[in-house]
Simulated scan of single mutants.
Amino acid sequence: MKLIIKRIKSDLYNVFVKGDSDKVEQARVFVLLTVPFLSILFAFGRFPVY
């Protein structure tokens, strides 16, 4: 569990702070941020219609 948390922290640091990340780190951060957001979005209402 410590390894997973350490990996997530280093991925977030590399993507947002350093800006030096590879595609795998970017994909992990994307999934980490979009899955909870879309779950909350669809749980409380429908997708915004423009």
Rank of each mutant, 00 (worst) to 15 (best):
I40C: 10
A27Y: 02
A27E: 09
F44A: 05
A43V: 05
L3P: 06
D20Q: 13
L41A: 14
L38A: 04
R7A: 04
F44V: 10
V35R: 14
P36K: 02
F37H: 05
L12S: 02
N14G: 05
G19Y: 06
I40N: 09
L38G: 03
I5N: 06
Y13I: 09
A27Q: 12
F42K: 04
K9Q: 14
E25F: 03
L3K: 08
K2C: 10
D20P: 07
P48N: 04
V24T: 04
V35G: 03
R46C: 09
S39K: 14
F37A: 07
S21E: 12
G45K: 11
V17R: 05
L32M: 00
L41Q: 11
V31C: 09
K23S: 08
S21Y: 08
Y13D: 09
R46V: 09
K9L: 14
L12C: 02
L33P: 06
F42Y: 07
V29G: 00
N14Q: 12
K2L: 13
K18T: 11
V49W: 08
F47K: 03
A43P: 00
S10H: 10
N14V: 01
G19W: 05
F37V: 06
F47Y: 14
A43L: 11
A43S: 06
K2F: 10
D20S: 10
V49Y: 08
V15E: 08
V31S: 14
L33S: 15
I5V: 14
I8C: 02
V35P: 12
A43F: 15
D20W: 07
N14A: 06
V24A: 02
D11V: 03
S21I: 06
A43C: 03
Y50Q: 14
R46Q: 10
D20M: 08
K23C: 04
F37T: 06
A43W: 14
R7C: 01
R7W: 09
S21T: 06
G19Q: 02
D11P: 00
R46F: 12
K23R: 15
I5R: 03
L3S: 08
D11Y: 01
K18D: 09
F47E: 05
Q26R: 15
L41E: 05
